[in-house]
Design a protein around this nucleic acid. Structure first.
Lengths: 225, 225
DNA sequence: GATGATACACTTGTATACTACCATTCCTGT
DNA sequence: ACAGGAATGGTAGTATACAAGTGTATCATC
């Protein structure tokens, strides 16, 4: 597991949360790995209490399975969880992008424009590892434009189920398509073209479904059933 | 605040969570009330740790506002939160009921049938206070039929923002309409009539919007802005 | 050797002690 | 009378200690 440095004024709980989330998404903490509260506390140089609070929160999102008096484990990739996350994301993303078409102002569009331009830049330079974070930020900005930022936040932890599958998908070809999708979405929002925007979101999210089967055959030990 | 008895094998954390949620929904804990970790721990006969864990979880859902080193308070009813909750519920409920139309089997329909029959019974007897819980159970069952029970669970805490407004709405006339809506939804699911089902969900949820203005004028001290 | 009991090391759940910080109050000096 | 500051009480954040339970490994017994 990779231990990031702790920010000065960051609470120990937020710190533990940040490290755990990051390592679960990056798969440095592989599905099935055991997580010891004591051990993690020692590694991070904090006490059990904040570590425990972080683990509980991730347990609520089914990212860590907590068995009392036995141990806690990074959850295996559960197709049902991935499917629910994908379903939820498709449903809310489409509804939110419609709202964004109505409510987008110059400031919001400028934020999206900057983001997509950066994605295109990194893509042209072959620095595809930078795109993951920009991808998330792009969608977050759309939620903010639609004044639905709480919903984004509530869903973000659940979407880690989805993000793990994304991390495993190594096809760089896809980055090209993803960035292209984002550009088209931005243009649809500019034009307030709801119908096109919704179609783009749906197409965008189906890209990942195909990969899942490939990944599953390559890494069956990461999957639940 | 009303202190329920603790179940035998229930963990202290789950117990604290149950009591807090219940009292926030019922408004026995009024918006703006201060919550002391020490005081609550003493009232429930448990220690600060599990109480604290429950408060943190409700803080994540913006139902309790935590100001470090100052205190924690039951959040005021925030129209933005209520709106986001309503939006999320409308969007997911419509998508889920479509799935339910596809996937409903005899067993699921029987569960819904029993539930609605009970609602109609309590309504005819004027026992409208029983309908609140059945209402929630009805929608939960639809999510289960659509195999989206995790989504229901993830959203349930956020929906308390919505539930508080429901608790304040005293118009019993509405119960009549709500139960009627449920009956019609059930029939639509039986007939696999997605379009009608979606229309019903949308109409169903707009009922609450009207009340909010009335309640706000009657209880301005409960509202945020 | 196979089997069962028991001690042990480990886990999470809970309780308690301590720390840093904030807001108020009340006392002191001007 | 008023302003400033120290003392005080209370809060959430963190650390540590203890309790209750689980799985394993060891050892005695058959």
């Amino acid at each position: 597991m990779e231990v990031y440095p702790k920010f000065p004024k960051e609470t120990a709980r937020d710190y533990a949360m940040r490290v755990l989330k990051g390592n679960i998404i990056s798969l440095d903490l592989k599905p099935g790995t055991s997580i010891s509260e004591n051990e993690l506390a020692a590694e991070l140089g904090i006490s059990r209490t904040p570590v425990r609070e972080a683990i509980i929160e991730l347990g609520k999102a089914y990212l860590i399975e907590i068995y009392p008096q036995r141990g806690s484990f990074v959850s295996l990739i559960d197709p049902k969880m991935v499917e629910e996350a994908r379903f939820l994301r498709r449903v809310t993303d489409t509804a939110v992008i419609e709202e964004a078409c109505d409510q987008a102002d110059d400031e919001g569009i400028a934020l999206l424009e900057d983001n997509v331009s950066l994605q295109e830049f990194y893509l042209s330079k072959g620095m595809t590892e930078k795109i993951f974070e920009l991808d998330n930020q792009f969608h977050k900005t759309i939620y903010q434009i639609a004044k639905k930022d709480i919903i984004y936040e509530i869903h973000s932890t659940l979407m880690i189920h989805f993000d793990r599958v994304r991390t495993l998908s190594v096809e760089t070809v896809k980055d090209f398509k993803v960035v292209g999708d984002h550009r088209k979405m931005l243009e649809a929002i500019k034009a307030k073209d709801k119908q096109t925007a919704v179609e783009l979101v749906n197409k965008h999210l189906t890209r990942y479904k195909i990969d899942e089967k490939e990944i599953r055959s390559q890494r069956p030990e990461y999957f639940k059933a």
